[in-house]
Structures are given as structure tokens and as C-alpha cells.
Amino acid sequence: MILHDAQKRLRQARPSDLEIEDVGLLAALGRVAACDIKSLIAIPPADNSAMDGFAVNAAEMREGSEYSISQRIAAGQAPTPLEEGTVARIFTGANMPDGADAVVIQEHCDYTENTVKINRSAEPGSNVRPLGQDIQIGAVVINKGQRLNSVDLSLLASIGVAEVPVYERLKVAIFSTGDELVEPGEPLQEGQIYNSNRALLTGLCRELGYEVIDCGIVKDTLEETKSALSNAAKCAHLILSSGGVSVGEEDYIKPAIEELGSLDMWRVQMKPGKPVAYGSIEGTRFLGLPGNPVSSFVVFQLLGVPLMQTLQKQNQSQPLTYMVEAGFDKKVTSREEYIRVKLVRRADGELVADRFKNLSSGILSSLSWADGLVRHEIGEKIERGMKVAYLPMTRSML
């Protein structure tokens, strides 16, 4: 596939030279682990009860018999060894006493404060969480390159980690090109439009955990484009631009990159998003996105994210793709196309992909409406009812 080849090329970029820093556990959310993290303790740290009930030696128990309760063990208390021929009242999460190997749940017992009648026997290990059942000492709980989510932080907390070694955040310099652009809040003059790509790309990068360097709007001249690129290369790991990558007389990204550095990829046979530029300036990677907001978004998701994860030294997994039923017809395409769709559920429960009514790359509202993209391969005709590849479209496609 065209996209697969482009993604593979971007993933071969050399990772950025990133510093490693130790941050507090709660500050590590969304950061990328800089090393494997191993557990120095076992979880659970001792055999403990999975239920409220009675800790017993299973071999001594007889169904229907009555036994003395020799101790009461709550979570957080240290038990004493179980006296022979007795049971211990025990609660969920409490450590098992030496000499006990099973828990009879309280629903299977008749009991008073001092005695219990066992109505149903238990096998050794019943209702017991064994030492190290979750995590063994020395087990790797977080892998180098793993982007940390809230569950990961909880896991680290469970093994007592207070500080986490992480890579510094990828610095992404963002600018938009175009004399027609003005920022929201300013009055529009004839022929001008508001700069929506700045908010789009800044938000996407921040959702992915990157540090954004806002370089504003660059006017359509070769000198200003070269100056913006050169300045951005001095302070960022990646330069991300929107607009100016087509073949018009007012598109200066390509000649500027060729003068300042190297252009490694120019245009991709995909829709939306054909005008794409990829290269480097003074050792800093550059990705030029189309100016149309939909094209910019799609290229960012499908090409920008793999590149940025590589530069951030983040482990990568292939985006999830599902086969769903097409709820529309589409003629044969000459470019690999990514169609904005929303999944709807028919009366029979089947999920069907319904496409947006207008597939123009300038229809920004379609991104707010859609929940995914359908891949339309070159030479393929889509007919209503056939199975198509659906890519879920979270706003940052993590």
C-alpha cells in the first residue's frame, strides 16, 4: 500500500537525541519511559485472602463440622500461625496465617464470634491469592519506550516507584504559511480566512504529549520561509508546517527545504493529502502538511504520528483496523483514499460505515462528524454492503 510504504520510510528516521530526566510518578502521565522498569517486590507480597471468610487447613476440614475461631485477621494486620484444629476469621486482602492453605467463604458457613460450622469444604488454594500472583520480583512491569497511561502509573505505584526515568518531551515547532491567514480574534479582510490549522496541530501534538513551539504565520515569500525554517531548526526536534507544499508559484516550502537541507520525500499518492514534504534542515526533521485542514489532519494522523513516535523513542504498534460493512458506493480511485465515515448500527445489530456527504478536503466539519476513516485502495470499487477496512479515528490516534 502507498501509505504503508510511506509510514515505513518515516519510521526509519533516526530517533532524536533526547535527554533523560527523572520525574515524579504523577508527572509521568503521557511521558515515554527511558528504560525498562523492574519490580523489586512481589505483588501480592504474601499469600492473602480473596474473600471474606475463614482461613483453614484444607486437610483438617470436615464438611458439617464445627471449629473454634482462634484469631481474627483484617487487611493490614500481621497474623500468627494457625493453631492446629482451628480456623481464623479473615477478611479480603488480609495475609494468610502460616498453616492455612484455603479460605472458606462466609456464605458457606454458620458462625458466631467464637465458633464456625463449615457447610462446604474447600480445596487447597481456594479463594487465596498466592504471593507474586500478579508480579514476581524482578519482573519487567514497564518497557523502555512505553508511553505511560494512568493504569501504568497505578502499576508503578503498586510496586513503590515514586520517580520515573523518562525521555524529555519531543519539541515540535509549528507554523502555518499563507498570506491569506489571520488568527481568530482579528478582523477578516477580503480574501482572508482564519488559521484553523494552528489550533488543530497544536492540540494534536499536546494530546500526544509533545512540547509545542508556536512559530505563528509565515508569509508567502522564499526568504521568510527560509528564515522560519532555519530558526525553527535551532530550537526543535521536528518542524511541522501546514500549507505551501503544493506546486503553485506561491508555494515556497520545497525550494526552501532544498536550499537549507535535504528533501527526502515529496508528495504521496494518497487522498486527501497528496502534497506532503519530508526532509531535514541542519539535522532537524521536517514534515510539511497540506494547507487544507482535512488533508492536514489525515496526513498528521497517518504519517506524522509514526514519525513523531520514532523521534520520541516511543514503542509503536500498528493502528487497529476493523472490517465493517460499507453503507455507500464509491467509484474506482486512482489514489489511495481515506474516506471520513461514521459507524451506525442497523436494526439487525450490524455496524455499517456511513460516509460524510461532502468529501472535499476543505470541509473541516466532516472531522468533527466522523469517528473513523475507510481505506479505499487504488483500483478498488466500493459497493454498498461489501466489507471495507475501517480505522478508528480518535482525535490523536494513540
Rank of each mutant, 00 (worst) to 15 (best):
A370T: 02
L3D: 08
E350H: 10
G178W: 02
S368Y: 12
G93I: 06
A34S: 05
E83V: 12
G273K: 08
Q189D: 11
P79H: 08
I281H: 01
L398P: 11
K387I: 02
M61S: 06
P15L: 04
V212S: 02
S150F: 14
S365L: 10
F297M: 10
V182Y: 01
G243T: 07
H237C: 05
N292M: 07
A46L: 02
Q301I: 03
K313F: 00
R345N: 11
S16L: 00
Q7N: 09
G385H: 04
V161H: 08
E168V: 08
E107C: 04
S366H: 07
A157M: 11
Y67H: 09
V324D: 04
S360K: 08
R169M: 06
E337Q: 12
F300D: 01
P165I: 09
I253F: 02
P187H: 03
C109Q: 07
S280M: 03
C215E: 13
A233T: 06
V299P: 05
N231R: 13
L260F: 03
V140T: 15
P15D: 07
G372R: 00
E377A: 13
V388K: 01
L391G: 08
V172G: 02
S126Q: 13
V245N: 03
I339V: 14
E282L: 06
T92D: 07
S396M: 04
E113R: 13
P79M: 05
V23I: 15
M323L: 13
Y194R: 03
R267A: 06
S317A: 10
G125L: 01
M51F: 12
A157Q: 14
Q136F: 09
Q136V: 11
V103T: 03
L40Q: 15
A100C: 05
H4L: 11
S154F: 11
A33L: 02
A94H: 10
I378F: 03
Q136M: 13
G85R: 12
S242C: 11
W369N: 01
R198Y: 11
A233Q: 01
R62E: 14
G203F: 04
V352P: 00
L155C: 11
A232K: 05
K271N: 14
Y194E: 05
L367C: 13
F175R: 05
V116P: 07
M61L: 14
W266E: 12
D110Q: 12
E337W: 04
E223V: 00
S126N: 10
A75I: 10
G203Q: 12
K144F: 00
N57E: 12
N315Y: 10
G291D: 03
A233P: 04
